[in-house]
């Protein structure tokens, strides 16, 4: 079995894995970081979004071995020194989550979005969330939270 090594949330992580192991399963099962979720099997729901070398990627659509040597950030690595990331804060402040299952992927997508497009409007946020499905919130408060976070981070 190939040995795969990468940096996850700032720490080195490596394991022997089958080549067919998806990055999401490496993260969840080998590293025990279960904040990253699997909500579909067609790579559409976005519950599994993590950052690979600073960019949002669906960890269910990439093999762990493809991420060899990469710098991975998961939702667990977002808060720094016990302080929530502004996007995390905004999701709580604006009730951008209910059951919480899609939330890690939503938050990771939102952080990436704000990095790419600091000046957001509602239409852009809604379009950019095409790859993230939420069944609880109707997106209303997710959109509000992302807009608020982008303001706060300016």
């Amino acid at each position: 079995m190939p040995v795969v090594a990468m940096t996850v949330n700032g720490k080195p992580a490596s394991a022997d894995v089958e080549a067919r192991t998806l990055l999401v399963h490496f993260i969840r099962e080998h590293l025990g970081l279960t904040g990253t979720h699997v909500g579909c099997d067609t790579s559409q729901c976005g519950a599994c979004v993590v950052h690979v070398d600073g960019r949002a990627v669906k960890s269910c659509a990439i093999l762990a071995v493809q991420a060899e040597g990469a710098d991975i950030v998961t939702v667990e690595g977002l808060a720094k020194n016990g302080e929530l990331h502004p996007v995390q804060q905004a999701f709580r402040e604006h009730h951008g989550l209910q059951c919480g299952f899609c939330t890690p992927g939503m938050i990771m997508t939102a952080v990436d979005l704000i990095r790419r497009k600091p000046n957001l409007d509602e239409k852009t946020v809604r379009e950019e969330l095409e790859g993230n499905i939420c069944r609880c919130t109707g997106y209303h408060n997710i959109v509000k939270a992302i807009l608020a976070a982008s303001q706060a981070m300016r």
Binding site: G46, V57, K58, A61, D112, L113, R116, E128, E130, G131
Partner: peptide, 9 residues
């Protein structure tokens, strides 16, 4: 094409 995460890969 696809969504932002897909476009990154």
């Amino acid at each position: 094409i696809g969504d932002p995460a897909v476009r990154h890969m």
